[in-house]
């Protein structure tokens, strides 16, 4: 059983030419390294496996760029069998024809045996390129990969493209959308968030993984990267601030009752309010409310968020019971990857 659940961890595979920025991505997103410091990273010589213990345990495999995975000495089944997404990193500041050629071979090889794998192409290191040039390169990559796959007879393959850079929030947003595709409960979460924001006058709400600042789900309104940054940095603000005063006290005093979770809010001069509430050990809800009346109705917001929290708990409990194999044939009929892998 323990073995089974371990295999059910969605696995992210990071691949691409050497020096394209794969290790920098894992360091910045999962190890909180400053982007400037990634300059000093050594090149990766063996497969680097990172296990993220977060709301969902997933693995990140960082592949050395020079490896040839389809060499017969490699056990492709072992590498690709359970993976959720293959992330292919392309250095946009470099000559990328070789990288594209290898990408298409990889996709074609995968299509035969593991067609369910999402291929995510990160057009990376785009920070220093100007806007026009950036979108030219992006178009070029999409076009060339699409053409090559078409020629090989694969129409509409499972490939998505993202413009990324570790120097801004784009890498977090791209990884968020990669991970969201691997979450079976995503629809439910989005529905819950939609209900919450519509009933509480919120502009946008994100459910964040606290450690990595990747968002697990958001409501279905269009994503605005400014609001994303306000929310993501708000987590930093609150975590940093809390660290300063969260020391063990010799004689802890208390002035009354209080909830267990961290809750925080900030109101601005223009009436805007940012609100954060810890949902469980790994997740927190961050939302922006533009309505000027928000600060007077905080009690109501608290209450709504509390109900959302209960619903969230119910969603994840169910998932846990299912992986435990105790509930069968009941609940949502949508196929869950981990459920399938257990039953076979």
């Amino acid at each position: 059983m323990a073995k089974n659940t371990r295999q059910a961890k969605p696995r992210l595979l990071l691949m691409g030419q050497r020096r394209s920025g794969k290790s920098s991505i894992t360091s910045v997103v999962f190890h909180k390294m400053e982007p400037q410091e990634t300059l000093f990273l050594e090149s990766t010589t063996r497969i680097q496996k990172d296990i993220m213990n977060s709301f969902m345990d997933f693995q990140v495999w960082d592949f050395p760029g020079q490896l040839d995975y389809f060499d017969s000495t490699f056990d492709t089944t072992q590498i690709f069998a359970d993976i959720g997404a293959l992330i292919w990193v392309i250095d946009a500041q470099d000559e990328y024809s070789d990288s594209l050629a290898r990408l298409t071979t990889t996709i074609i090889n995968l299509q035969n045996t593991f067609p369910h794998i999402n291929v995510e192409v990160f057009v990376h290191k785009t920070d220093s390129l100007n806007e026009d040039f950036r979108s030219d390169i992006f178009q070029d990559v999409v076009q060339r990969v699409g053409d090559d796959l078409n020629d090989a007879g694969y129409i509409n393959p499972n490939v998505s493209y993202h413009l990324t850079s570790i120097y801004d929030s784009s890498i977090f947003e791209a990884l968020s959308s990669v991970i969201q595709k691997l979450i079976p409960e995503l629809d439910v979460l989005q529905n819950l968030l939609d209900t919450l924001i519509n009933n509480s006058g919120m502009t946008k709400a994100y459910l964040f993984d606290i450690l990595s600042k990747i968002y697990v789900a958001s409501d279905t309104r269009p994503v605005d990267s400014d609001i994303y940054e306000i929310c993501a940095n708000y987590i930093d603000l609150t975590v940093d601030f809390t660290d300063l005063y969260n020391y063990p006290r010799d004689d802890p005093k208390s002035l009354g009752e209080q909830m267990e979770e961290v809750e925080s809010s900030m109101t601005f001069e223009d009436g805007k309010m940012v609100y954060l509430k810890e949902m469980n050990k790994h997740l927190c809800l961050v939302t922006v409310i533009q309505n000027k009346e928000a600060k007077d109705k905080k009690g109501l917001i608290d209450y709504n968020v509390h109900i959302f929290q209960d619903a969230l708990k119910a969603v994840f409990e169910r998932a846990w019971e299912k992986t435990g194999g105790e509930v069968t044939g009941e609940g949502q009929s949508s196929a869950r990857p981990e459920q399938n892998s257990l039953e076979t």
Partner: peptide, 10 residues
């Protein structure tokens, strides 16, 4: 900002 509040168990 006008007011920043944070409530934690400690």
């Amino acid at each position: 900002f006008v007011l920043y509040k944070v409530q934690t168990p400690s």
